[in-house]
């Protein structure tokens, strides 16, 4: 699943470690989400959505929906 996490993080001028701390996850998890190697759970996706004050669908792109 593609996402705009890296862009949103850069807009806030946060490092991966800063974002990881705010989300209560490891820096590796933030990196894995940004690079698309790991899709976050729904609770974590909502947490990200709340943090950036944007709807989930504006942060995460459903690959299956795009393809159809």
């Amino acid at each position: 699943m593609k996402n705009r996490l890296k862009v949103l993080r850069a807009e806030c001028d946060w490092t991966q470690a800063d974002l990881a701390e705010k989300l209560e996850v490891s820096r590796q998890t933030v990196n894995a989400i940004e690079t698309g190697k790991y899709d976050p759970s729904l609770p974590l996706a909502f947490k990200i959505s709340r943090l950036f004050d944007q709807p989930i669908e504006q942060i995460f792109e459903d690959g299956a929906e795009t393809n159809s």
Partner: peptide
Amino acid sequence: HLNVLDELMKK
């Protein structure tokens, strides 16, 4: 310790 890990680390 496992319970306090984040979701990727748990996986």
